[in-house]
Design a binder for these strands. Structure first.
Length: 275
DNA sequence: CTCATTTGACCCAA
DNA sequence: TTGGGTCAAATGAG
């Protein structure tokens, strides 16, 4: 078949991948620096802030997708060959964990880490992102002043969403957080206005109260948590209400559309708050 | 009572 | 061997 688009041969693509990723990484680096500059500005332009977020996010996602594709190529045959064994590790430790715990309650921490999940990192002064997260752990990290908090999607159980995020305050700039997203949302939470619509109609303070149940409420446990939370959220409400939702809608298009996940989620909204 | 968070224990990967 | 990621009992909040 003739094609109008001169797509590169797979081999070429593969050999170029490293270079592509490298280029993207440079762009990502620049975007990160730009973000810091923008946020350090006394009166940062909200528009600029949003744009930088989007740029950074795009870089992150693109790199992650490429990297994941590379991993996938390498691993897929192994996965197929050793499905029995791998299902445990790939399909998140959850199910295996559940059955394990049924047999032996002692076996805490008996799990297989996800090794090839899509990851992306964001530096932000805001922790909440419109998704519903549930905290499942916190660790002090070596040589880090601040602990790292671990969150999983609140829809992990009802919708099987495997998204995870890790939040850690940055060393130098305590107003900023280093947020790592692992995996992608397969839930409808992000669409179903878990937070966004309600944010729109809530005052910042009432949002803070209500959000405690739906979005990351406490990744700053050992810190001067509530004060900081208030600061962060008050500072971020306007931005979050539109910009973040935009940002995630965009992310979704670039990443999540690949999986037919909407099937299991159906068309109905599944907002526990409305149930 | 239900659900989320905290926190120590445990296991895996480097 | 050790740091980091996850589990799950205990605890707290609504």
């Amino acid at each position: 078949m003739d094609t109008l688009y001169p797509w590169p041969e797979p081999e070429t693509l593969s050999s170029n991948k490293k270079g592509v990723i490298q280029q993207l990484a440079e762009g990502q680096q620049c975007a990160t620096e730009l973000q810091v500059i923008v946020l350090q500005n006394n009166k940062p332009s909200q528009q600029a802030e949003e744009l930088v977020q989007k740029i950074l996010w795009s870089f992150n996602q693109t790199i992650s997708m490429l990297a994941e594709a590379g991993h996938h190529d390498e691993v897929i045959s192994q996965n197929q060959a050793t499905c029995n064994d791998d299902c445990k590790s790939q399909d998140s430790s959850e199910s295996s964990k559940r059955s394990l715990s049924a047999f032996a309650k002692d076996k805490r921490g008996c799990y297989k880490r996800k090794r090839f999940a899509q990851t992306s990192t964001v530096v932000s002064d805001k922790i909440e992102d419109g998704h519903a997260w549930r905290k499942y752990g916190q660790k002090n990290i070596l040589n880090s002043k601040h602990p790292r908090s671990y969150f999983r999607c609140s829809h992990k159980h009802d919708q099987g969403c495997s998204a995870i995020k890790q939040v850690q305050r940055m060393e130098d700039d305590t107003q900023m957080y280093h947020i790592t997203y692992i995996g992608t949302h397969t839930c409808r939470g992000q669409y179903s206005s878990m937070a966004t619509p309600r944010i729109d109609r809530l005052s910042p303070i009432s949002k803070l109260e209500s959000e405690e149940q739906t979005t990351t409420p406490s990744d700053v446990t050992d810190l001067d948590s509530m004060t900081m939370w208030t600061d962060v959220m008050m500072g971020g409400v306007g931005f979050e209400a539109d910009a973040v939702s935009n940002m995630y809608s965009c992310t979704e298009i670039t990443c999540l559309d690949l999986e037919p996940v909407e099937l299991e989620n159906g068309l109905q909204f599944d907002d526990p708050d409305f149930a």
